[in-house]
Nucleic acid binder design. Sequence first.
DNA 1: TATTGTGAATTTTTTCACAGCC
DNA 2: GGCTGTGAAAAAATTCACAATA
Lengths: 209, 209
Amino acid sequence: MKVLKIPEATVIRLSVYSRYLEQVRRKGTSTISSEEIARGVGVSSAQVRKDLAYFGDFGTRGVGYNVIELYGHLMKILGLTRQWQAVIVGAGKLGSALAMYAGFAQRGFKIVGVLDSDQHKIGQKLEDLYIEPFENLGSVVAQHKAEIGIITVPAEVAQNVAEAMVAAGIRGILNFSPRSLNLSDDIVVRNVDLSVNLEILSFYLGSRK
Amino acid sequence: MKVLKIPEATVIRLSVYSRYLEQVRRKGTSTISSEEIARGVGVSSAQVRKDLAYFGDFGTRGVGYNVIELYGHLMKILGLTRQWQAVIVGAGKLGSALAMYAGFAQRGFKIVGVLDSDQHKIGQKLEDLYIEPFENLGSVVAQHKAEIGIITVPAEVAQNVAEAMVAAGIRGILNFSPRSLNLSDDIVVRNVDLSVNLEILSFYLGSRK
DNA sequence: TATTGTGAATTTTTTCACAGCC
DNA sequence: GGCTGTGAAAAAATTCACAATA
């Protein structure tokens, strides 16, 4: 095992492996081979072994991987052995749904604030949170030590919101707006443009009939 | 220009270029260089030219690309000059938000049905749609000629829902559940696991401080 | 025997750099 | 003079294939 730059595709797959293992673990299986993991998530077994080898020798030749152990390693690698605090800016349909989405909490991501600049939305309740004025961003981030920001505002204001987040101390941004953000490169950004994903389906559907 | 296999990364970028051009077009700019597009979306200009070259010679040497023309080409390539009908199965937080999400309609994707098997949800109104029983899947798909299915159900039932979609005639699936789907390979599948994206942020945030 | 870990080979993707053209 | 289109070069990611070993 050598330490070097990890392909982003590897990081994505590690996250996928970890969920698959979580599920395998619940069934009580104690040992698993790279071949089984591969089948479970739809990649090659060599790929699984290569991905894992970036981080250590987790398996036993002739036997496979201990499910609980490997799961633990992956959670550690992914930084999921702690809780992360996140704020959402943009309390439209998507932002509100994400604020209440159970999937995030299950993996240790806690939404500590939902902000918007629309007077009509401010004060509305989303489960146990109230929508707050965007101006509160700095204090919410500071108070809850949030490090992750989720952007669900229209494209036109995404850059401004991103800059405000960075000024407030946010270090990583999940950007649902269809606008590429221009930020200092010590800020980690992931773009999740939902329409892009439908458009990719459209491309492949269109060209095959 | 040669016709050969298009990298998926290229398809993703084409979708991103098309949105950037839409925005440029609204400002009234008539001509744009690969360098400007590159800056606008955060890739290299050679990448932009290479991506476009898979599909044709759209530019003029010494001048650049005609914005409206190039936009039209991209929309055509992506299969977005028509409307697509889509059904959503799973009317939880996420599914309900997606059903009302304006971003899809803006790009020609029309949600024609939202289905769930929970008696408490059936009959509820989501803007101009009513949540229908999952059993209606076949008839909804047939009636509206839906070709795209969006899965927002829990992991345990995702595979079943996917198979029912395929049986109903769906050809492309956007899968928001954290489970890899096992389907005949003439079905186009895109996985959009929202937690995976947060976990990737977590990985990069964790390893840099 | 079964399965990992990993160099080497292969394939894919990106970048370079410049001829060709407006 | 400026910018595209594209072969060639470089870099990155994946697959192969097998020695190592429980």
